[in-house]
Design a protein around this nucleic acid. Structure first.
Length: 540
RNA sequence: GGUCGGGUGCCAGAGUGGUCCAAUGGGGCGGAUUGCAAAUCCGUUUAUCGUGGGUUCGAAUCCCACCCCGACCUCCA
């Protein structure tokens, strides 16, 4: 059974039919770099990564437009933008009110610097918004690489895969100009305070993605679309494409004055630029009969992007670049992973359940365990991140690694590897049923007492999709007697206790040795006697 | 109020009309192992599937109502 996905547009699973089955185009709305990305951000990015990895796997089959099946492997060009334009903190009040977010981030950085809380070796000029953006961008890329985001690894060689909004303003201006020319956008205000808006009434399909059609928006009681804040708009749902503001902290020249672009236009410009052959002025991308207005194969983003961001992106992209402005979906599949809860509650800084990958890594959580915890729940359900889940995942990973690490594996054929690969692929083809796929792996491994090389090869094929086993393994710190797990710092006191315990055990004074173990347990450390008198120390 | 996604054992989480008295992992319990632990290995245990009604020969799976959780309704993955 070839791959089936549930696009947000369809609300039901459908076979995935790319334009070119051998080469899939995939755009992911990337991070805003005003701050470190948290585990919720990464859940969404990793879900996209998993989809991409499966598409590239030899296990993945895809439906052909003319019918029939295309067998993997295939290539995927996966692009993810870096949003380094500082949007406004109060853009809902009026387009362009409040403080620029990049400026706010700079202010926070300046405070951290003053308090001596910046990591060693870091020198950022907090008043330079570009420097602030680059600082967080670099940290994001580090985290992404550690979590095995394939795109971030590739981007180390090909930076065009992670384009920056600030370096694509020319493309945004071109897109806006095309929209104005096609009468899908209009300019209001006098020079010095001009604003360009997209005219939502020019795109009848507006609202199809989110269900927020123009009628529903009018009836809605969210209170955000209020006419009072929207002076000059033809329709309250019209959205900003360009804002003239010569005083802004980040500004560019444009035909509509010096200023900055709206929130949505950057993704249009960057996806068109990197994933299509951009049409010349006056020309448009021809419509695919089967998928009108579909230019990209896949487009992903967190569920909060569905409205307004992706709704607006579809409208402006189709109106600027495709043959018809009447309808269009821009991407064949819209892929929206749901939000992550933490210990059953919404993640928030005030609740203290807000985590970034680097914080967890510093505690000794290994990237593989975090990755598995973040991908193991179906992407269209809210996932619940728990410390228990992290431990569960760690055990699964340790178990799988024991299979791969067995260097006495023989050449005899494996009785179960083929069926396991098929079961894994079946689950993944079914709208990425990762939990089912992991279950297939575990059930198979349960039947193995001694892995063969074929088993190991099969597990590697599976892991090329899941992407956990190849991740960096934090190293234990070894001292004379202790083997300290990642995240546990050796100290002279602990060393002394371990030495005392060793002596007590040698003298068969188990009361003392157990007392020392209890003492360590009170400090949150669990020990395990290893070979040769060594003692493994980890957090309990 | 509108538009969506969910509610399955102690926990996480699959399963979308019969093969489900419900996968898988963790936990619990028992055994091997250990001075005792831990880890590992072996075995084992636990669910009438949010509530109420309906459709059907048959429902966790379809329909209706209600309750609850989460997202969005121009900051947010």
């Amino acid at each position: 059974m070839p791959l089936v996905l549930q696009s947000t547009l369809d609300r039901q699973p459908r076979p995935f039919v790319p334009r070119d089955p051998a080469h899939v185009t995939f755009y992911t709305c990337g991070p805003t770099v005003y701050d470190d990305a948290h585990i919720g951000n990464f859940r969404s990015f990793l879900a996209a990564d998993l989809l991409r990895r499966f598409l590239e796997s030899p296990l993945c089959e895809v439906t052909l437009r003319e019918g029939g099946v295309h067998a993997g492997p295939r290539t995927v060009t996966h692009v993810m933008n870096i949003t380094d334009v500082g949007h406004m903190t109060e853009d809902d009040v009026a387009d362009g009110a409040g403080e620029d977010k990049m400026a706010a981030a700079g202010r926070r950085l300046a405070e951290a610097k003053k308090a001596g809380k910046l990591p060693a070796g870091v020198d950022v000029n907090p008043s330079d918004p570009f420097a602030v953006a680059r600082f967080y961008e670099a940290r994001f890329k580090e985290d992404a690489v550690r979590l095995g985001l394939k795109l971030a690894i590739e981007a180390q060689r090909d930076p065009t895969l992670m384009p920056r909004a600030t370096e694509n303003v020319a493309g945004m201006i071109e897109a806006i100009a095309r929209l104005i020319e096609r009468r899908c956008a209009y300019i209001v205000g006098e020079p010095g305070a001009r604003v360009v808006y997209f005219d939502v009434q020019a795109f009848p399909a507006y609202g199809r993605l989110s269900g927020n059609t123009l009628d529903n928006l009018r009836e809605g009681e969210g209170g955000r679309v209020s006419a009072a804040n929207q002076a000059g708009k033809k329709h309250p749902a019209d959205f900003l494409l360009w804002k003239e503001d010569p005083t802004h902290i980040m500004k560019w020249e444009s035909p509509w004055g010096d200023g900055y672009p709206g929130w949505h236009i950057e993704c249009t410009a960057m996806s068109i630029a990197r994933l299509t052959s951009p049409p010349s002025p006056g020309e448009f991308i021809p419509t695919d009969v089967a998928f009108p207005g579909a230019v990209l194969d896949l487009h992903s983003g967190g569920e909060d992007n569905i409205f307004p961001h992706h709704e607006c992106e579809i409208a402006q992209s189709c109106c600027a670049y495709t043959a018809s402005t009447l309808s269009g979906q821009f991407s064949r599949v819209w892929f929206h992973p749901r939000f992550l809860l933490v210990e059953g509650a919404k993640m928030s800084k005030s609740k203290g359940n807000f985590f970034t990958p680097r914080e967890l890594f510093a505690k000794g959580i290994e990237p593989a365990a975090l990755r598995l915890e973040l991908i193991r729940t179906h992407y269209r359900s809210n996932a619940n991140f728990t410390m228990q889940g992290l431990t569960d995942g760690q055990r699964i990973i340790d178990r799988w690694r024991r299979v791969l690490d067995d260097d006495t594996a023989g050449d005899e054929p494996s009785p179960g590897a083929k069926a396991a690969l098929a079961a894994f692929a079946d689950a993944m083809h079914d709208d990425l049923n990762v939990a089912g796929a992991i279950a297939a792996v575990n059930s198979w491994l349960n039947t193995i007492t001694k892995p063969t090389r074929e088993d190991q090869a099969a597990l590697r094929t599976i892991d090329a999709v899941l992407g956990v086993l190849g991740l960096e393994r934090p190293k234990a710190t070894t001292t004379g007697i202790g083997v300290y797990a990642p995240g546990v710092e050796p100290s002279p006191e602990i060393e002394a206790l371990l030495a005392l315990r060793r002596d007590a055990r040698a003298a068969k004074d188990f009361a003392t040795s157990d007392a020392i173990r209890d003492q360590l347990a009170q400090r949150g450390l669990a020990i395990k006697d290893g070979p040769g008198g060594s003692v493994e120390v980890r957090r309990s």
